[in-house]
Amino acid sequence: MATKAVCVLKGDGPVQGIINFEQKESNGPVKVWGSIKGLTEGLHGFHVHEFGDNTAGCTSAGPHFNPLSRKHGGPKDEERHVGDLGNVTADKDGVADVSIEDSVISLSGDHCIIGRTLVVHEKADDLGKGGNEESTKTGNAGSRLACGVIGIAQ
């Protein structure tokens, strides 16, 4: 089992970053940390998408990683996509320092995120509470600013 993974985020604009993942036990939580720069100040949706395909930019990554066919939600919700990591918060300089621990994603097994795409979005994720159909699919997080395929790390 891989215990570490990394993702280099890039987009068409100024947004870029490096996100690290570490899972010490196969059924334990995954620590997610790193930094994203070039964002507007505020909240930005942060999700693992189904495919590791960036051939047409971030759009070819498909929908959120959702092997259990659930509705979109927040990272602490029972009803959520596996890939729903909530929001990252950018400061006035456009930098989001990421520090998350998640017990639904994994670096092995059915919820493995390796080979899938991590995406940072234009807007805040409403965590499935926006009151419309799009909220239950995407959290109304808007366009995909930057993305990268999650790969095994040393």
Rank of each mutant, 00 (worst) to 15 (best):
A146S: 07
D125K: 02
P29H: 06
V82L: 07
H121F: 02
G94A: 08
G38E: 07
K31L: 07
E22W: 13
T89G: 05
P75I: 06
S135D: 03
V88P: 04
C7E: 02
E50S: 10
K37N: 09
V8H: 06
F51K: 04
K71D: 13
Q16D: 08
W33D: 12
P14T: 10
G28T: 15
V8Q: 13
T136C: 12
G148C: 05
I36N: 02
V6Q: 07
C58G: 01
T136P: 07
N27M: 08
R116W: 00
K92H: 09
N132I: 15
S143G: 08
G128N: 04
R80W: 01
E78D: 15
G130A: 10
R80H: 12
K24P: 08
P29R: 14
H44F: 09
D84Y: 00
S99D: 10
H81A: 02
G17E: 00
N140L: 09
G109H: 14
D125G: 00
S108N: 09
T55R: 05
T136D: 08
E50G: 05
V88E: 05
G62M: 02
I114H: 06
K123E: 12
V32S: 11
H121I: 00
S135G: 05
T55M: 01
D125Q: 01
K92L: 13
E41M: 14
R144V: 00
C58A: 00
P67D: 14
G131R: 11
A146P: 00
R144D: 02
L43M: 12
N27W: 07
G109V: 09
L85V: 12
N54G: 13
S103N: 05
V104D: 11
P63H: 06
G17Y: 14
G34H: 01
V149M: 07
S103L: 08
G42A: 06
V98Q: 06
S26H: 15
E122G: 13
N132C: 07
N20T: 06
E25C: 06
G73C: 03
F65E: 00
K137V: 05
I113Y: 01
S143Y: 14
L9R: 01
H44A: 10
K129M: 07
F65L: 14
D97T: 14
D97R: 13
E79W: 13
T3L: 10
K123M: 14
G62R: 02
S35W: 14
K4E: 12
D84C: 03
T89C: 05
E133S: 07
L68H: 04
V95H: 06
A5I: 04
G74N: 15
D102N: 13
